[in-house]
Amino acid sequence: MPPGDLAIWFFIFAELLAFGIFFVAYAFARAHNVELFNESQQHLNIASGAINTLVLITSSYFVVRAVAAIKQNFSRECARWIAAAIGMGGIFLAIKLFELYAKFSAGISLSTNTFYMFYLSLTIFHFMHVILGMVILTAVMLKARSGGYSAKLHTGVETGASYWHMVDMLWIILFPLVYVIH
């Protein structure tokens, strides 16, 4: 069995499918508007996309450490690693909001062109998944802090961890696809 509650895995696979279709749709839409996509992509902030990748990867690693901690029966340590991961999620959101604010201030919207329609909807859709992941991790952190998990019983920690890794995985594809490849 995969780590965590089996139900979360059906949810994860549904999410992978939805994002997968979105990624492929982006690639084929680009194939029909190569110049427009290449030109619009030049205006994206690659540094902020890259920093956010580093931030999410690190937060995923923190969640790995949280799972390792609870497997040793260290509830408080587990809660602290999760809190650190949530903090990284907050940094991701702040950087993303800054980036989106810059785009909206420049008058860019979903109707600007096909590239921006994809850029905004893909990143905002992913943004909402980061928020959901942070909500799940917060619930797990609170339960861990109150000693609700142990070395033997910690399915909840692995469930939250699996969802958070998925959010990280999706950004690992989204970043090169939308910001770098042309």
Partner: peptide, 21 residues
């Protein structure tokens, strides 16, 4: 393009195999 996408594929596989376990 193939290098960058290939890198992403390797990274996702690493997250799935090791981080997700």
């Amino acid at each position: 393009m193939l290098t960058v996408l290939g890198t992403a594929v390797i990274k996702v596989q690493m997250v799935s195999s090791y981080f997700m376990g």
